[in-house]
Each structure stands twice: as C-alpha cells, then as structure tokens.
Design a protein around this nucleic acid. Structure first.
Length: 556
RNA sequence: GCCCCCGUGGCGCAACGGAUAGCGCAACGGAUUUCUACUCCGUUGGUUGCAGGUUCGAAUCCUGCCGGGGGCGCCA
C-alpha cells in the first residue's frame, strides 16, 4: 500500500463516519490527508495527523471535540478498513498505522510493472513551463558560475516532465551591447600583439579563438582596425556559440531553444515591449532617459530602459524577452541565476507585474549560491581577467560528467557549495554518487545471476514479511512523493538524498535477506518474491538517476 | 548604509510547522571466507549562532542582534 492509497483509505473512513452520523464536518471532508513515514521505529508503517488538523473543525453530537477523542473515532473506523493491520493513537492525537504485509508487498510488482514510468504523476499536468538557465555570455567558455544551473536546471526540467508538465529548456545569449566590443577588441589586441585592453578579456581561450578567426579569415589583419574588429566579433562569437553548445551537449544538457538577445533589438520586439508598457502607463521620461516604474511594483527604485544617448539599456532586452515567452504560450517562466545576480530579482518581478502579470507565478526567479572547487583541500581561485577560469570542461575532465552533475544537484541551491575534486573522484562509499551507482551495479549483478540460474521474479506479496523487506518496500513506495515534492519546491536535491537513503536501505536488506537459492537449494516462492523486490529497487535507482542526468551503470 | 542567502554533533550536510532532530565521513568496538566487502551491526558525540515572539506543537514562521558568503551603475 502506497502513501497515496492510504490517504484515500483514510478519506473513505472519514466519509463513512460522516455518513453514519458519528461526526459532522461543516467544511466538508478533505480530498486528501497528510500521510508520512514516522521517523521513529515503533510508530507504525505510516502516521497521519488528520485528527490534529481537523479536531477544531469537527463536531461530535453537535459539540466540539479534542484531537484524541476524534482520533479514537477515526482509529476505530480505520481498523476495519481493508489492508490495515493496526492503528494506534499516540501523543497529542497522531494515528500510527500498520499496513498488512500483503498490501505492502504489492508495491514491488507495481513498480516493476510501471518500469521507467514509475514515479510519474500528473501533479503538473497541463502546465507549459519555460526554463531559462545557464545563459552565460558568449565572450568566453562556460565557467563554473553557470554550471550549477546546468545540472540543477536540467534535473528540474526532468522532474517537471515526470510530473506531467510540458517543458522547454532555453538559453539566452547576451549577444548585444558593449561586452561584445570588449570581446572583439581583446581578440584583435591579441592578434596584433598588443596588451589586453582596459576592461578586456585575457586568458588562453582568447588566444585560441583569435587563432581560429585568423585561420578562417587569413587577410583579417590587412583591414582597417574597425573592420578587422568587426570580423573578429562576428567570427569569434560564432566560434564561442559552437564551443558553449558543445560543452553543454557533452554535459548531457540539451536546450530546446538558443535565444539571441540581438534578435530582439533587430526585430523591433524591444520597441514593442516598451510601447506596451508605455500604454499601460508604466514608463516616463526624465533627464532625457526613458524609465520603467518598477518602484511602483515593489522594486527599490525605478530603472532606466532607454538611456539618454538613445541606446537601449540591458533591462529592455529582458522586457522584450519576457513578453516573447509569454506570447509563445508559457504560463510559467523560470529564470535561474547565480547569487551575484540576486539584485535583478526585484526589477524582474516588478517588470512582470508592470505587464499585468503575476510575479511568482508567471515569472519565477531562482537564485543559486556560489560554487567553489577544492583541489588538495585548497580552493581553486579564478580570475577572468588573468584568464585563470575554471570551465565546465575542466570540471568534467577532473571528475567526469556523472560526478559533476550529481555533486552540483545534491545540495539545496540556497547553500554555497565546495566541490572537493578528490572526494568526487573516489570509488568509495563516502562519494555519494559512487554509493548510488554502486547500489545499481550490485542490483544489476544480482539480476544477471538470477537469469543464469533460471530464477524468475514473481509476485508473492504476503511472503515479504521480513523487517528489512518492509523497510525497502516503504522506501520504494515513497519515490513518487519525493518527485512531487522536488517539483513543487523546485528542489532536485531531494531526489539525490532519497537515492542515497534507498541505496543504504537496499544494502541492509541485501545483508540480512538472501535472495537467490544457495548451491543445490531448491528455488522457492520467497526467492522469486525477493527477486521481484530487487528488480523494483533497480527500477527506482535507475529512474532516480535519470532525473538527475546521471548514468545507471550495470557493472562497476 | 541598504538588499539577498546561510549559521544544525569533530567535518560535510538532511529534515514541505509535528512525536525521542536524522544521514554520510571521521573515531572506537564487533560481525561476516560474501548473491559485487567498494558490505553490515553497535558505541561515542546536539540547549539546531544568541535573545524574544506566534502556535496544541518551531531547526523550520515573525522581530532584533552576532558571525560568514554574495550583491547594490543611464555596465552588460
């Protein structure tokens, strides 16, 4: 019996009590109730706080009651329900519920039958979601700043898809404005053997790109400087686009849309967005510049969108981009940024409201704290100007894609993280990604052995009565709720933590429950039932790793 | 000065307002010649930064303080 099914059973019990006239619920019977796994052993398989939640609103004989008295009524009704082995009242009015072994054991067959689909739900069905993440400037290779969201954003996308949403992954190239002048002048400076310009970019990649541009356009240095710089800009940016896309592809992240800021300016979309906001009365002119009334919608102050020299300010691109997404039909637009951009949250939400939309719903901005790398216990320092940049490719080269993605996705994005490269490269149990992948390999090995012995999995739910079998079944039943919570809270790390728990639970089961027959022992139903449980574990480990974009190896 | 995030055993972290705050590592002591030992069991270790408040119930919500990280342009 899964928590969802138990919730239904409890709702049915409440309805039966109402139908019998035992209680009155003026606000109606809830459609679902909270069912959780008790932390403490001895508190049953599941616990619910319905009695505490509803006690204030329930009437018995037209009178109010207290949580414990109400709990007694629910417990009596529930005890008579199918699949329930026992109910105890504890503390202020918790109901601790034990489930019959047969009802519990069916989970294994359900998981295996669902296969890759196990864990899916319709919690976000009908939602059209746009996820914008990474969006690093095309003035250099992808560095560590954007990498966290590459892993977490893609995982979140997979989680939303698993809960029924339609997801578009999108990357915004800021290929408009002064930074590209700095990029192209840096390339030109290198080509002409001049020092790195003020505010320019340094580093080995500038040299590489400049060389590549010169290889493609051998006569570039014969042109006047301004024309030469234009060639370096056009060709250099194309090369950067290609390199960034390749890095992301190698990282296992596929974007559906690469959106170019420059298009918004060329197509008139920026002007259209500004006109829209002006029509809504949310702009004004002062000191020769055009301002957006963001303060009116909760920002610290108003923001310039067209500078007094006539140039569009950076925010104007964001206005047009947001409007474009909304017009493409996205109900929910997510933008994932690093902590160094948290100052944008206020103006972006205000911008959303200025269009008449609802910040937090139509536009949701997620902030991820900083990532640092540790090598030999020492932080790896970065300087963009000196060119000592740690790139996504450097990270992958050091620990591989699987460990990189797992390491970035296993922490709450509100916490800054230090990635210890030595730890994440280890093949031991203190490396979390190893722990989970190893469990999958161990399970796969067992399945192979079973096939060699000719033992086939079979469902015998009533035979799975061992304590460790119960632990494993309950853990497997938890998976859909973990995914749902991860989606609702935008917290993919919950999936990783769950998998680590599951791996531990499996190891404990494995240690005390022999699965395959030994020697010339005859194969029995318990062997087959346990093998089904092992297969179910394999399914959940594989499905969970998939959500994180991490491979599930069959051998290690 | 203002804004955002964080503060939980020695270390790294978890816990959607619920019960005796969990997990991994480290430390100590055991099991087991193993269906992948890259395993399992046990022990030690906490006033959840501090002080108030809300609640039947607070690590979690609110206020103030202390400490750490990041950010505050008519740059992009």
């Amino acid at each position: 019996m899964t928590p969802e099914q138990l919730s239904e059973t409890i709702v049915d019990a409440l309805e039966a009590l109402v139908a019998d006239g035992a209680i009155t619920l003026p606000d109606g019977v809830p459609t679902e109730v909270t069912v959780e796994r008790p932390r403490q052993k001895g508190h049953g398989d599941y616990a619910t706080n319905v009695a505490l939640q509803l006690a204030k609103r329930v009437l018995v004989d037209e009178q109010g009651t207290n949580p414990r008295a109400f709990a007694e009524l629910v417990a009596a009704q529930l005890t008579a329900s199918a699949g329930i082995a026992g109910v105890e009242i504890a503390g202020p009015g918790f109901l601790n519920i034990s489930v019959e072994a047969g009802a519990q054991g069916r989970v294994a067959a359900d998981v295996v039958a669902a296969g890759a689909a196990y864990g899916a739900s319709d919690a976000f069905a009908g939602e059209t979601i746009n996820l914008e993440f990474v969006s690093a400037n095309p003035t250099g290779p992808l560095h560590l700043g954007g990498v966290r969201w590459a892993a977490v954003g893609d995982a979140l996308g997979r989680i939303f898809e698993k809960t029924g949403a339609e997801v578009t992954r999108e990357y915004y190239f800021n290929d408009h404005g002064a930074q590209l002048d700095r990029f192209s002048s840096s390339l030109l400076a290198w080509a002409k053997d001049l020092p790195v310009p003020e505010d320019g970019y340094g580093g080995a990649y500038i040299e590489e790109i400049a060389r590549d541009v010169m290889a493609k356009e051998p006569d570039v240095l014969d042109l006047p400087d301004d024309e030469a710089q234009e060639v370096f800009r056009a060709v250099g940016v194309e090369l950067m686009f290609a390199e960034i896309k390749q890095s992301l592809h190698d990282f296992g992240v596929e974007f559906d849309v690469y959106f170019h800021e420059d298009n918004l300016h060329q197509s008139g979309a920026v002007q259209k967005a500004i006109d829209r906001l002006t029509a809504l009365g949310n702009t004004y002119t002062e000191d020769g510049a055009l301002w957006l009334r963001t303060e009116k919608y909760g920002d610290d102050k108003d923001r310039v969108i067209v500078r007094s020299n006539g140039a569009a300010a950076y925010l104007s691109g964001d206005l047009a981009y947001y409007l474009d997404k909304r017009e493409r039909g996205f109900d929910r637009c997510f933008i994932m940024l690093g902590a160094d951009h948290h100052g944008y949250v206020g103006r972006m939400n205000a911008m959303c409201a200025a269009f008449g939309d609802e910040p937090g719903k139509n536009l949701e901005i997620l902030i991820g704290q900083m990532v640092n790398l540790l090598r030999d216990g020492e932080p790896v320092r970065m300087s963009k100007r000196a060119g000592t940049v740690v790139t996504i490719d450097d990270l992958v080269e050091a620990i591989g894609v699987d460990a990189s993605r797992y390491a970035l996705a296993r922490y709450h994005s509100d916490s800054p993280i230090d990635i210890d490269l030595d730890l994440w490269a280890k093949a031991t149990n203190d490396n979390p990604v190893f722990t989970v992948q190893y469990a999958h390999a161990r399970v796969s090995s067992l399945m192979r052995n079973a096939a060699d012995l000719g033992v086939a999995a079979e469902s015998h739910p009533e035979l799975l009565t061992h304590e460790k079998e119960g632990d494993l079944l309950r853990a497997l039943a938890e998976f859909p709720r973990v995914i749902k919570a991860a989606a609702e809270l935008r917290e993919p790390h919950r999936v990783a933590r769950y998998l680590e728990d599951l791996a531990g639970t499996y190891h404990r089961f494995y240690d005390s429950c022999r699965v395959l027959p030994r020697g010339d022992e005859e194969t029995g139903d318990l062997h087959r039932a346990r093998l089904l449980l092992v297969d179910a574990t394999r399914v959940v480990l594989a499905n969970g790793l998939f959500l994180l974009g991490v491979s599930a190896p069959e051998r290690m």
